[in-house]
Amino acid sequence: MDATTARKGIFDRSTKGVQVDPVKILVERGRIRFFSQVLGQTDPVHFDLDAARAAGHPDLVAPPSFFMVIEASANEERRRRGISTVQELVQVDYRYLLHGEERYFYEAPIYAGDEVEIGIVVTDFYDKKGGAMEFVTFESRIVHPERGLLVRSQRSLLHRLPEPRS
């Protein structure tokens, strides 16, 4: 790649290894119901309290990808406190942003009423396609004060970098 075609990265790569301060989030029943409804969940353990209890759960069960709702809630909390969100920290530019990969490891269910702590680490930055795409990876964990680690996640986000102006 010569200098005339080099694209400039946008992510702040100096944030590699940064561990964002954990935030406590209360998992709300209404939020689980709304999220489940939009995804078209058919299993009533996600929206019907009686059905959830009949199936042996203490409350509504969060669907598998509810993890991201808790992360978004943590970012809202950071914004209220005047702290950078994770996206602001690594300097996401939504004009060029895409989601690369998402993976969850489930240790135990997340229930409505749980007050959980979520912590995130910026794990890496790398380039692909000769620098036309730049990636950032994160690892996060949702921990319950008594039940311990509930779910952990691995994520990559990417920028499709714009052509340099000549």
């Binding site: 969940q41 993976r103 489930y106």
Partner: peptide, 20 residues
């Protein structure tokens, strides 16, 4: 993820991941 949990039950899920 619903394809898997509607079949196996959400409590049986241990891992789920995908590339976009």
């Amino acid at each position: 993820a619903r394809v898997v949990t509607q079949w196996a039950g959400v409590a049986a899920l241990r891992e789920f991941g995908a590339r976009f």
